[in-house]
Amino acid sequence: MSSLPSAENAEPNLTPVLDMVFQLITFFMLVINFQAASLDLSLKLPVVGSARPVEKGAEDLLVLNINTAGQVMMYGNPIKPEDFVRKEGNEARIKLQLAGKKVKKGDELPTLVVVRADAGTPFELLNKVLTECQSEGFRKFALRAMNKVDAG
């Protein structure tokens, strides 16, 4: 008779459910990529077979999402590239000055500029952004591309 379930003991054992849920949470926490928030996924990047995988380093990155009109896209809003690059250049210099380095406008900055431009962007507009970056002192560039055609 003691094996019969009584009304007060009808509690399911939640431990395995909780265990599984925590494992799922751990999985999602590990795969979540906060950097992806700065990428504009509406841009159609060019496809280049030999593009190397992105190196994960502690390097300072400046991501430029450039649409076909030559504007920098920031969280879905178009911004004038000149203003944006100038502001980022100033910030990079202030950062270096706070670290005790003397830098003036045009001096080489250690920031890596990641260019994510739409495949249809005319060179004229892209070159404006690149030239602005160069005049601010950015020298290291990474041109982003897809390794293969995205099925989606």
Binding site: N33, A51, P53, M146, G152
Partner: peptide, 11 residues
């Protein structure tokens, strides 16, 4: 996010 590659340049 889609898997992207990059070409590093020194301009």
């Amino acid at each position: 996010s889609p898997v992207e590659g990059q070409i590093n340049l020194n301009l």
